[in-house]
Design a protein around this nucleic acid. Structure first.
Lengths: 359, 359
DNA sequence: TTGTAGGCGTTATCAT
DNA sequence: ATGATAACGCCTACAA
């Protein structure tokens, strides 16, 4: 069977021309409602917006009834144009496919929806051109605010230059933009992981890092060093392996380290998949976990409990990041005061991959 | 260390009042541009929209220059109000956290963005109330079309009732709504998996299914039965286990089956996580894979290559589902003809969990 | 208590 | 080749 994952067939065609406008009842407007209720559009607007308590109960009833009968719903475009607010939020993430970001997105979307806000979502792949395109797109649509994640690359100058000075933005994670932000103490998080490994008896701790220049990487690396210092261990350049944090590059890093006969008895990876890749490579080389090498990953994705041994990992309240950022945007949109920075706690989940106590 | 994943601290406050409007230059409008270029707004609009080839090169230049200098960008709300089209698409998924749906979402969003469309995303959790809320929200925002996934529950009558008859909708996956659709032959997919297991010598094939009533489950179950028939095996009620397709319920199902001493040597699960849960439970009971029980999962998520043994799984071109549905919506929005149904191929990826040939 | 009129920013029709 | 004007649907200051 040679399937190729492509389009296979089309069942039938349906033609759609604009010669004869299909006779669907036009959408009702305030005007329609006003006519049916026998009042002016002003009154309709007032009733439906709950303004003015000085309206006769009778008219109020009639308007509501007319609106109900017609199935009237205000046109958001017109409302937005008039009120200069759209109840819409832009959400920029590097890639919704990444566990970290879809949890975050879910938090943002849930919160927005509860407040009656819509969420426009944008995948940037951390590419400046896409970020710019999206900023323009969102700005054109007059979103009430933008949540910006995955920043911290090259200072994000292209972003700040493109944004209008009155733009309402909240960033999540490390960054250098002059906006309110949400995040955790990434350094402390990694330092904590290092200390945990030290407490398990590790003396030579390796690190599978990410891309230099990305602030998140720099922060975590700083935490790694700080953790080592705190535990009284030297930083060993040869035990720092830079990767793209995928499964494969992590495996490769381990293969190389083994080939070079490098010694290490602890490992921290800046992503769970990388940690899992490393775990597999190590096992293939006959290294036992956590006995020979104790491992800790990052982000505590669902993956961590699905592998064997289960992976220790640092959990961040990612859903809450998204939720809080959204709350902040909404507050800003409603001209309320907002905290300049909200910091959440992390949590180290110790599992079999780094737990030597029961061995 | 007793961390609780909650908000920890706020660094400082920034007050935002509306007493004194910050003196930011107002956004330029056609009017602004017209004045600077010394022409009428009509001309500006024409130039910027490429209408009319009968415009003097001189004015054209001046208008473009003025627009550039001012950083003018049209207000999408006004354009939408006027043109009755918003270049915005609504995407309804049960949960963006699910691997299937975030791949799909990515396909949709990428395609939309390339065409200059924005994507509003909505997580329904398959809850009718949320679906209704979102349909109204999207409709109010005058989206050009809605992509509806995860349907097929109770005929989705609440959806069709709520939608205006002229709504442009494309559904993905099994459903009973009268709209163009995208999908695969789910029955054939599962039947293929069953036949594969049969070819590996399995005689008693169990099935970890999903929620009865959901069309996707019914289709797959039908495929399961068809596969059995095709392979000359009887359907055994006792080997069909209904779960929510999570890791845990799958484990429980296996535990129960083992406790009841049920005999089976093949297993197909309607999700990868469920398959992995089953795999783990089986191993805990000392069952070897694929020797004693050969296993196939569904959706071919990244997880499948991260576990050991690697999991066989049925791959669907989910990214393409999203991309194609988006193309269809855009075509419909532009009044082009559209295929009534586009079907893609699936692909069975055989890996160690069901491959007995090398054993 | 209710209505009139103007304008949010565009584009399309009709003139010139 | 270009401009004046109306209209998309709504809200609100002002008027009555």
């Amino acid at each position: 069977m040679s399937h190729h994952l492509q389009r296979r067939s089309a069942t039938s065609m349906t033609e759609q021309t604009n010669l004869v406008a299909p006779k669907v009842a036009a959408r009702p407007t305030v005007k329609t409602v006003a006519e049916l209720a026998g009042v002016s559009t002003t009154t309709v607007s007032r009733v439906l917006n709950g303004k003015s308590q000085e309206l006769s109960e009778a008219t109020r009833q009639r308007v509501h009834e007319a609106a109900r009968v017609l199935g009237y719903r205000p046109n958001s475009l017109a409302v937005g144009l008039r009120k200069q607010t759209t109840r819409t939020i832009g959400l920029m993430v590097p890639d919704i496919g990444n566990s970290y970001f879809h949890q975050l997105a879910r938090g943002a979307e849930d919160t927005a929806m509860q407040a009656g806000y819509a969420t426009i979502f944008c995948n940037t792949d951390r590419r400046p051109e896409k970020e710019i395109t999206y900023i323009d797109l969102l700005s054109d649509k007059r979103v009430d605010g933008i949540i910006f994640t995955g920043g911290g690359v090259n200072g994000d100058s292209h972003v700040s230059e493109r944004l209008r000075p009155d733009a309402k933005v909240v960033t999540i994670g490390p960054h250098r933009l002059p906006f309110p932000s949400v995040g955790v103490d990434d350094r402390a998080a990694i330092a904590t992981a290092v200390e945990h490994l030290a407490s398990q008896g590790c003396r030579d701790i390796a690190c599978i890092g990410g891309t230099p220049g990305w602030l998140i990487h720099e922060e975590r690396l700083e935490g790694f060093r700080r953790g080592l210092t705190h535990a009284g261990m030297p930083f060993q350049e040869s035990l720092l392996w830079l990767t793209d944090l995928t499964h494969n590059e992590a495996k490769t890093a381990i293969d190389r380290a083994v080939a070079q006969d490098l010694r290490f008895d602890g490992l921290i990876a800046f992503s769970d998949v990388a940690a899992v890749g490393a775990m597999r490579a190590l096992r293939e080389h006959g290294v036992s976990i956590p006995g020979d090498v104790a491992i800790v990953g990052c982000d505590d994705t669902t993956l961590s409990t699905l592998v064997e041994p289960q992976l220790s990992s640092i959990a961040f309240p990612v859903y809450e990041f998204g939720a809080e950022a959204t709350r902040m945007i909404i507050a800003m949109a409603e001209n309320k005061s907002v905290e300049q920075h909200v910091e959440f706690d992390f949590e180290l989940h110790v599992r079999a991959s780094s737990d030597r106590s029961s061995a």
